[in-house]
Amino acid sequence: MNFILELVVSVFLLVGGIFILVGSIGLMRLPDFFMRLHAPTKATTLGMGGLLIASMILFTLREPGHISVHELLITLFLFITAPVSAHMMAKTALHQKLKMISRTRGQALVEPASQQMAPSGETVESGKS
């Protein structure tokens, strides 16, 4: 029983750690800001979810009769705030007109997007700029 508990907790911890690491590697490796934004917002948040679930399982099952679910609060909080802060940072980057790498499609949309306007006409496919 104890061995299985440790095994399950270890698997969750490892998965969480790997996702956190992948998030930071993405942050270091990807070429422009908008692409960098993808790695930490998704991978790191899921990694935290894994770690907190591991902590929850461990502290609940370690001693019988003691239930530990308050890690759920941090998990929920992170899952609610991660997209909000990602949205705000993307907004900031659009406002500051940060460069995207040249093969990004739809760069014509940066101008209307940074002023919160509707795209003029249909979505323009102008890849090379």
């Binding site: 969480g16 934004l37 790191t44 770690l51 980057a93």
Partner: peptide, 26 residues
């Protein structure tokens, strides 16, 4: 290269430090 990049790095750093604290608790 930009302020927004540094902001993103800080944002990721605080989430990672939560991870370290949880690990310390375990």
């Amino acid at each position: 290269p930009d302020l927004a990049d540094r902001l993103l790095a800080l944002d990721t750093m605080y989430i990672n430090s939560i991870a370290l604290i949880i690990l310390l608790g375990i």
